[in-house]
Amino acid sequence: MAGITGKDQVLTAYANKLATLDAPKGRSLTQDAVRRLVRNKMAVLSIFVLVAIVLVAFIGPYFVTWGYSQVDWGQIRKPPNFDTGHYFGTDQNGRDMLARVLQGTQMSLIVAAVATFVSVSIGVVYGAVAGYFGGRVDAIMMRIVDIMYALPYILFVIILVVMFGRNPVLLFVGIGAIEWLTMARIVRGQTLSIKEKEFVEAARAGGAKPFTIIMRHIVPNLTGPVVIYATLTIPEIIIAESFLSYLGLGVQEPQTSLGTLISAGAPVAEVMPWLLLAPAVVLVTLLFCLTYIGDGLRDALDPKDR
């Protein structure tokens, strides 16, 4: 859900700082940023945990005896039990919860990655074009962004779901396609200031085409906002995805996602708490890690007091 984690404000503040301060001199941006990021203990820990979660989600299934849709008829509704090999217990259909949580995590991560990629790409291109051409083109393009801001986001998502039906990948291309507004605004602002710089003028004087200038000279200077935006967008999409799945509009059985698992676990949590807790813990850990990483990156790339 747009802005649910307050990322718009975080990012706008960051962009304002970028606009008011001159580019740092001396050490390269990445070198400096990495050094600062490493000093942030919470962020480093979060990166390790996140990498661990990603590895386990994608490699883990090969080591789990049970498939995510495989039914163990002798073990239905069983709590976690090491003797039967169901470390996270089984659900009402006798499916292994560990396998299902792994598959769900995988699905949530893929969906988030796809949607984030889509939204960042659209945002960067749209913003860069608006900012580069300026004038009337810019005015019209930004007016469109203003109008889209006024549309109720979640209703839009639900309408999209109805449009694209049950195809999760298409669905999240759709979600990504309406997440890009803030990104576009920031990229536009950045482009407006960058295009006045001497090196862009030099390129233009050398006969470079607008597209080349945008891709070669403007986009690389947007690394900071893009990286921060992406890390903050991933948790947002994961939340949006799990929410849609919760409403029954997302990923469909027998495939699953963290949201689907939670929605299946919530009504029976009283009698079978493991069905809710396992996916919930993974989801919350994932979200916290991504947020700490995003915050850490923001501080590391902060143009102030460098």
Partner: peptide
């Protein structure tokens, strides 16, 4: 952090379980 990051349906489920049940 807790309020902003935990999705509302999960928060609802946990609160229902703890304070309701």
């Amino acid at each position: 952090m807790i309020g902003v990051l935990i999705p509302n349906f999960l928060m609802a489920a946990l609160l229902q379980l703890w304070f309701g049940v």
